[in-house]
Amino acid sequence: MTFNRRRSLTGLLFLAPYAISFVTFIVLPIIVAAYLSVMQFDLTAKGSIHYVGLQNFKEAWADQYFWSGIKATLSFVILMVPSMLVFALGTAIGLNAMSRGRNAVRALLFLPGLLNVAVTAILWGWFYDGTFGLFNFLLKKVGIGEVHWLSEKALAMPSIVVMTLWWTMGGTAIVLLAALQQIPRHIIEAAALDGAGKWAMFRKIVFPLLTPVLLFVVITNTIGAFQVFGQPFLLTKGGPELATRGLVQYIYETAFNNYRMGYGAAMSWMLFAIIAVFALLQYRLLRRSVA
């Protein structure tokens, strides 16, 4: 046996534990999910599982709750991703400009990300409470009446977005800060010598250099936002009037409250298709904007 051959055989042994896990918990579930999505399968009537073709997908297409779920999820994505991007980029630029105490502030911004979703929801549920909440207490102090943060249809989703921003913005800002710091100083200095203004410098030099990272940030945040579940589930239970019941929550309730496993799997595939389309679109658009 040659040295390289032996090495690659050893390599297979090194790869095996992860590969087995990957096949068992990712590849196999994908196959099962595909199988389930064309079956009628109710857990409470176990013996009755049978093939129904594309009926689950057709049902979703005609299901008003499926569409209200998509609407809620989309409204979260549309509010969340751009505000996250603007806010995190602004913070990163601010941090980059700091001359003292940058590391301490960076740590403070990251701290909320350590809280789990249950704790975050308890805390903000108290802030947002209509009568006993902290925000309304502060508003009353300055003479503004009660605001129904979580139970006014127009406000519920934005309130959840603000909470999520506080919760997750730090990590994204740190990633962007790292990218900013990697831009070689001499490029900036050369541009400054050429008399470039601050805005022009940002637009012509910093932004293009940041694009790969921005692409990464936008796509990962979009994928994450499409999967929003914990925050509305714990804060509003999906209300008011289903305004915050996203698709993942509906899938969860379909599969685990109404026991319709097949229908749940079919809707999961549809969610995946939507995410894939969005991720691809963003990739294309952002790539083009640099070129």
């Binding site: 790869l15 990712i26 999961s268």
Partner: peptide
């Protein structure tokens, strides 16, 4: 480093699978 045959392709598949939302796996898992 050990240059497993097909390793690069496997890495590509892994990264591709990262795009799939976790909810899809919930019921099957």
């Amino acid at each position: 480093r050990l240059k497993v045959p097909g390793g690069g392709v496997f890495l590509g598949i892994i990264v591709g699978a990262m795009m799939i939302p976790g909810q899809l796996f919930l019921v099957p898992v």
